[in-house]
Structures are given as structure tokens and as C-alpha cells.
Write a protein that binds this DNA or RNA. Structure first.
Length: 572
DNA sequence: CTAGGGTTAG
């Protein structure tokens, strides 16, 4: 009977079968595979969970498979946690729970990140010995990774009796998406040592980790493997390779991959490449690519426009960007908060503060913190006290407690020598529990990634690094460099302020590479925050005095320092 | 008392 129920059975045929089962008495058998199949059909193919539940309720003694069919249907329902309630009913009624039951309930809980339910399920799974099931273990690893508890994800992974390629992939992807790229790459290497052969999904996670770390050497190795194994027939893999090259600072290599792809480009391919040019400040190439995209009859989506606005922003193409923003609706793409944020940034950087403010007020949605922070940044650049106060007021009302907002406002006052107001901001900062996002940088040296935090002394050669910084400080002063201490806001004297600046992570990273290499190869630094004005000024001089090209990726874009100037033309 | 369930780029 079950074989009579392929996916394409119509609803009326299914109901006929149900009638047949009822009239022949089979419907009330303790085990009836056709009945379970019917329930599955109702929930999955006919999208009628309520009818499936109605049918289920007529079964006197539902089998595990009947329960599973309903639970599976509940995953996609508007109330996935209902699956957990059904599960509890099942246990209270002493119905037999199998690995599949747990799998469906876990997946439902994962959808809404129901953490406490997931933990209860985890303990059931352990007690029933279901961790021997590689698939269920993988679901659990993925679940913990998705709720951000990577320690638990790793523990489950370690405790699994049997692991297959998907188990490894789940944890690698989990680390990569959970901002633990170092762990992702370490696991990737461990997997190869243990003898598993990376597949498409593995390399996606590993490449994403390389992108985050700027791990170019490792990225190249993965690229070579992809070509050997012909994994580049997969668009997603190609897109990840393009992204990796772009984020490691090689827009040209990214474009080579883009051009010579043997599989069909997807919308994501175009968006990735446009974003690559945007990050590198190559606004014109981004706009050109957008033209080509139209010729290739690929319709842009919200991400395409975001990438374009970003490109115009970084290249200072104010009119082009504003025009694109205004043409979005006509192309059938509705601007979201991020598009508004980008335009506010575009206008703000160009000094058109009032227009930027008007854009925020014309928004159909509630402006978020980031938007006001963007405008505050522009107020600082153009020393506009009135608007800075107005915007800060908004930020305080919205409960901002990041140090950057306070620093910006204080900078605006400091520029006008309004010291009393500077002190007021400083006190407000103390009385609140202001969060400071810790800054850090990565550099790759002989294939090894080194991480530096601000003021870090944990590196084995920290003494040499700090000595090198002293030397740099001495040499650049001859070139008229003065520390821009307005980038610091602490209750400390000028000299300590200078020290606080001198130990920014990107400076440590650059100094480290200068003492470790003698050749004139470019220095690549990856930073989690935006580069500060002082580091920018200092690295420009280093590139000249030490005759080294220095490429810094900050949170938003690349800065390419060469012979004393930067590719961003000091517009960032 | 079939198998079914897990990992995926901008």
C-alpha cells in the first residue's frame, strides 16, 4: 500500500486510500506503514498539518512513525515549539521514541533557537544512547553552533561515537559562522590528518574562515585542492573563492576567478564581485560590473544595491550613489535600513549633514542605532556641534552604551575647545556601564596567523615589537608626525594618550612583520574595527620610510598604503 | 517493525 503513495499522488487519491484503510480495518493496526505515509503526505506535500493532526487523533494506538510524521510537519509550522509539547506528550504516554523523533524535535527547536528545550532534548539523547547516531549528533552540533554555544558544539562533536564528513562540516561551518575562524581552520586541518576528504561544503566553511582571517596562504592551498578535485563546478564554491581573494586583499585575483568560472554565475557571484570592488575603493569597476550584470539579464536584489552604494561611498561618488538609491524602487527593490544607512553615510561624508538628517526623518521604518552613529561620525568630521548634540540625544534615548559614540561627541566638543562639555561627556561615560569593543588585528607570517590586541604583550617577541615601535615613533617624528590624541578619551595625560594610541593592534601587527621579514613583500593586516586617524597617518609614513606596501583591511574596506599615501585618498 | 533525519557562499 505504501508503494502506492509516491510524492505526486493527488489529495483525493490519498483520501481514497485512507478510506480503504479504514474500511479494511488496517487503519487501526498497531503498525501501519501506509497510515504513517499518509500523515507525512498530508503535512509535507499537501501542506495541511491540521488535516494530518485530525487524522492522527483518530488513531487509537499511534506508532512511532505516526508521531514522527506529525513532528516532522511541525518543524515548518508557525509554532515550532509545539513539537516539544507533542514530544512530551509522547513520552508521558510511554510511546517509543527513536533517533528520528529526536532529530525532528531538535530541528524544530533549532528553528526558533529554543535553548532550554534543546538542552533537555540533549540529555534525553545521551541517556538513550542516540549519540551513536552520526546524523543525530550532527544535528546537535549544528544546533549548538547556531545558538552560539560553540563550546557545547565542540563537546558534542568530541563525544560522538561515529563521525562522518557532515559532522566535521557542521562544526567547521559553525566555527566559521560563529566568528571563530582560527578554530575552523584548525579543525579543517585536523580533519585532513584523520583522513577525511573535504567536499564542497567543507571548503565553503574553510574558505569563509580564510576570508575572515585574511589567511591568504591557506586560502591558496584550498583553492589548489578545489581545482584538483574539480569542486569548482559548484557556484557556491566559486563564490567563496572570489570572496576569499577579495577579503585577503587581492581584487585582481578575485576578478580572474570571476572571469574564468566554468559554471554559471549566480546573483550571489555578481554581488560578491561588486562588493569586492567596493571594499577596494574601486567604485568605477563596481558600477561597470553592474552594467554588465544588466546585460547578462541578472536582476539585482537588495544586496546588489547595498554593494553599489557601498562602492559609491568608498569612492566618493556622491551623485552616482544618490541616483542609484533613488532608482531602486523603480527596479522593484525596496530600500531597507542598511540602504538608508549607506545613503546617510554617503551624504554625511560629503558634508551634506542636513540632507542626511532629512533622509533619516523621511524613512518609513524606525532608524537604528547604526544610522545615528553614522551621522554622528559625519558631525565629527565636519565639527558640527549643534547636530552632534541632537544626534547624541537620540543615541542616548535609544540606550547606546558603546564608547565610540561618547568619544565622537567628545571629539566634536574638543575641536571647539569646549573643555567643560568634554568633561561632562567623560563623566557620563563613567556613570554608565559603557562597553568598549576590543580592537584586534591579524597578520599572516610564513603561513601562520598572528593575532594582536590593543596593548597586547602576549606575543613571544613583544619586547622586540615594542622596541621597533619606539624606533618608528622616533623616525616618523622627523617627518613632522604628531600623535592625533583626539582619538583617545581617557582621563589621562597627553603622554599616556600617545601610548594608548601607539599600542593599537594594527601598529603592533605592522611592527611585527617589519622585524620578521627583510624582503619588500607587501604587509597584509586584517582589523576588526575601523582604522583610527592616527594609525592611518602613521602607516602612511611607515610605507614611505620603510619602503613597504601595507594593505590594511578594516571593518568596512581596504586601505592600500604606498610611498606615503593611501588608496582611500584619506576619504573614509 | 523499510527508510526516513544532519553539514552549504554575498
Amino acid at each position: 500500500m505504501a508503494s502506492l503513495l509516491p510524492k505526486y499522488t493527488s489529495l483525493s487519491h490519498a483520501k481514497q486510500l485512507q478510506a480503504h484503510l479504514i474500511t479494511t480495518g488496517q487503519f487501526q493496526f498497531r503498525i501501519c506503514p501506509s497510515r504513517s505515509k499518509l500523515l507525512e503526505l498530508y503535512t509535507l506535500s499537501f501542506d495541511s498539518l491540521s488535516f494530518a493532526i485530525h487524522t492522527f487523533c483518530q488513531i487509537l494506538t499511534p506508532s512511532t512513525n505516526d508521531w514522527n510524521a506529525i513532528l516532522r510537519g511541525l518543524i515548518g509550522s508557525p509554532a515550532p515549539t509545539d513539537a516539544f509539547l507533542w514530544y512530551k506528550t509522547m513520552i508521558r504516554g510511554s510511546y517509543r521514541v527513536d533517533a528520528l523523533t529526536c532529530s525532528f524535535v531538535l530541528k524544530a527547536c533549532a528553528r526558533v533557537l529554543a535553548f532550554s528545550e534543546s538542552i533537555q532534548l540533549h540529555s534525553h539523547i545521551v541517556r538513550k544512547g542516540f549519540l551513536a547516531d552520526a546524523l543525530l549528533g550532527t544535528t546537535l552540533v549544528d544546533l549548538y553552533a547556531k545558538v552560539g554555544d560553540l563550546d557545547s558544539a565542540e563537546r558534542v562533536f568530541d563525544e560522538m561515537v561515529k563521525r562522518d564528513i557532515a559532522s566535521w562540516n557542521a562544526l567547521i561551518s559553525g566555527f566559521a559562522q560563529g566568528s571563530k575562524p582560527t578554530e575552523a581552520l584548525a579543525l579543517f586541518k585536523r580533519m585532513e590528518i584523520v583522513g577525511f576528504k573535504p567536499n564542497e561544503i567543507t571548503v565553503l566553511g574553510a574558505l569563509s574562515a580564510c576570508s575572515q582571517l585574511g589567511a591568504f596562504k591557506e586560502g591558496e592551498k584550498i583553492r589548489a585542492y578545489i581545482r584538483e578535485e574539480r569542486l569548482d563546478m559548484n557556484v557556491q564554491v566559486c563564490n567563496a573563492v572570489i570572496d576569499m581573494y577579495a577579503k585577503c586583499g587581492f581584487a585582481d585575483k578575485a576578478y580572474l576567478v570571476f572571469e574564468s568560472m566554468s559554471c554559471k554565475k549566480s546573483l550571489v557571484t555578481w554581488n560578491t564581485m561588486i562588493m569586492a570592488f567596493a571594499m577596494h575603493g574601486d567604485g568605477c569597476k563596481a558600477l561597470e560590473l553592474f552594467e554588465q550584470m544588466g546585460q547578462a539579464e541578472v536582476d539585482p536584489d537588495a544586496v546588489s544595491y547595498l554593494a553599489l552604494l557601498c562602492a559609491c561611498n568608498h569612492a566618493g561618488l556622491v551623485e552616482e550613489g544618490y541616483g542609484l538609491f533613488n532608482s531602486m524602487e523603480k527596479s522593484g527593490v525596496t530600500p531597507n535600513v542598511k540602504h538608508y544607512g549607506s545613503v546617510v553615510d554617503l551624504l554625511g561624508r560629503a558634508g551634506r549633514l542636513q540632507e542626511a538628517y532629512d533622509v533619516i526623518n523621511s524613512m518609513p521604518m524606525v532608524p537604528d542605532l547604526v544610522l545615528w552613529q553614522t551621522l554622528l561620525g559625519a558631525c565629527r568630521t565636519y565639527a558640527n556641534v549643534e547636530m552632534a548634540e541632537l544626534v547624541s540625544q537620540k543615541l542616548v534615548e535609544m540606550g547606546s552604551n558603546t564608547d565610540g559614540d561618547f568619544v565622537l561627541l567628545s571629539n566634536v566638543y574638543a575641536a571647539q575647545k569646549r573643555w567643560a562639555d568634554v568633561g561632562r561627556v567623560r563623566n557620563a561615560m563613567k556613570s554608565r556601564d559603557v562597553k568598549k569593543v576590543p580592537g584586534f588585528s591579524y597578520v599572516e607570517e610564513k603561513g601562520v596567523i598572528h593575532k594582536f590586541c590593543n596593548g597586547d604583550k602576549s606575543h613571544e617577541s613583544w619586547r622586540e615589537i615594542y622596541a621597533k615601535l619606539d624606533e618608528i615613533r622616533f623616525r616618523i617624528k622627523e617627518y613632522g608626525y604628531l600623535a592625533e590624541t583626539s582619538f583617545v578619551l581617557h582621563d589621562i595625560g597627553e603622554e599616556e594618550k600617545e601610548n594608548a594610541l601607539y599600542h593599537h593592534s594594527e601598529k603592533l601587527a605592522v611592527a611585527f612583520v617589519l622585524i620578521s621579514t627583510s624582503t619588500g613583500t607587501p604587509i597584509h593586516v586584517i582589523k576588526n574595527l575601523r582604522i583610527c586617524g592616527d594609525c592611518h597617518a602613521m602607516i602612511k609614513l611607515i610605507s614611505k620610510i620603510y619602503d613597504r606596501e601595507i594593505i590594511v583591511r578594516d571593518r568596512l574596506r581596504f586601505h592600500r598604503f604606498k610611498q606615503g599615501s593611501c588608496s582611500c585618498r584619506d576619504y573614509w
